[in-house]
């Protein structure tokens, strides 16, 4: 089993290294889909592989083995997974699952509170303006979805520019971008290796909305200007050095260059093959584990019940 269970884990590492780079060759919409799917499958591969490794250790606990019942001494000699490795896998898995549960709970609580408040807003309003000096604009999913914008944001932009901002937020709502973000974030919490995919995925989602907005207002530089102006106006007096920098200048540069090329399916194909390889590896590892335990059951039966299945 150790070789087959290493395949899904190796695929996770390969995804972390290659998927963000490969996504750059794609149109933002396709890139967002690709990264989100890859992150979800990657997190599942990681969880599955760790669970199999941890189970190798669990099966050697006498109390668990008695449930089979299977031969513990057979497992000790035949299962190539060492006990320390199994324990390490179990600890990492427990940590990831606990962290994911805590994050999901915290986020769920904040979201529920926000949606409860949003439900009190009048139904016929798509745009909600908050009279506050801070620079803020965001999309709030729901039925109906809403765009919340501060007067600070409106005042720091020119009228044509805020139209581009609204178009950007509406694109988020129209394409359910919050769902992409939830999946990406959860995958990264479950499997830290998916963090680069989540980062690039967030960027791809923003770029997707940027491209839609640019098309809606018919002017790419207009949106680029709005982005730059809003980002500058939103700067605190003493900016934290490079802590959160990055995506905005990259988005602006992408808008000022030519619209993304139609499609390059090569990188999509590579990622798909990687994911299939990982799934096949996980399937093989599961089958190997099952075969090993069937033998352990048989060994126990031969020793204790004269070859008949023990009851």
């Amino acid at each position: 089993m150790p070789l087959s269970v290493a395949v899904p884990l190796a695929v996770c590492v390969l995804l972390a290294v290659t998927a963000p780079r490969l996504s750059r060759a794609l149109v933002p919409r396709v890139a967002a889909w690709m990264l989100t799917c890859a992150a979800a499958v990657g997190a599942a591969l990681w969880t599955g592989a760790l669970a199999l490794l941890a189970f190798a250790g669990l099966g050697r606990v006498r109390a668990v083995a008695a449930l089979g019942p299977w031969s513990v001494s057979f497992l000790h000699t035949q299962d190539p997974v060492s006990t320390p490795l199994a324990c390490a896998a179990g600890t990492v898995l427990a940590g990831c699952l606990a962290w994911a549960a805590v994050t999901a709970y915290r986020r769920g609580r904040v979201l529920t509170a926000a949606y409860r408040k949003a439900a009190r807003l009048p139904d016929d309003r798509e745009l909600i303006v908050v009279d506050a000096p801070r620079i803020e604009a965001f999309a709030l999913p729901g039925r109906p979805g809403r765009v919340v914008v501060s007067t600070g944001m409106l005042r720091s932009l020119e009228p044509a520019e805020w139209e581009a901002v609204l178009a950007h937020e509406q694109a988020h709502l129209r394409h359910h971008h919050h769902a992409f973000l939830h999946v990406l974030h959860l995958a990264a919490v479950l499997c830290p290796l998916m963090l680069p995919l989540a980062r690039e995925g967030e960027y791809a989602v923003e770029r997707w909305a940027d491209e839609e907005a640019a098309e809606a207002v018919g002017d790419r530089t207009l949106l680029a200007r709005a982005l730059a102006r809003a980002a500058l106006a939103g700067q605190p007096a003493h900016p934290a050095p490079a802590a959160t920098g990055g995506p905005v200048p990259r988005r602006v540069r992408a808008l000022l260059s030519r619209p993304p090329a139609r499609r390059r399916t090569g990188s999509l194909l590579v990622v798909t093959l990687l994911l299939l390889l990982g799934l096949a590896g996980l399937g093989q590892a599961t089958a190997d584990t099952r075969a090993l335990y069937e033998q352990a059951l048989h060994t126990y039966a031969v020793r204790h019940c004269g070859g008949h299945p023990c009851r």
């Binding site: 986020r107 904040v110 979201l111 926000a114 620079i135 803020e136 604009a137 965001f138 999309a139 709030l140 944001m153 901002v165 950007h168 937020e169 988020h172 971008h177 919050h178 973000l181 939830h182 990406l184 974030h185 967030e202 989602v205 923003e206 909305a209 982005l227 809003a230 980002a231 500058l232 939103g234 700067q235 605190p236 900016p239 934290a240 050095p241 490079a242 802590a243 959160t244 920098g245 990055g246 995506p247 905005v248 200048p249």
Partner: peptide, 15 residues
């Protein structure tokens, strides 16, 4: 990550 925000912070160089 909960809400898609229009802009995030800038580093000095970005600014």
């Amino acid at each position: 990550a909960v809400l898609a925000r229009f802009v995030s912070g800038l580093s000095e160089e970005d600014e």
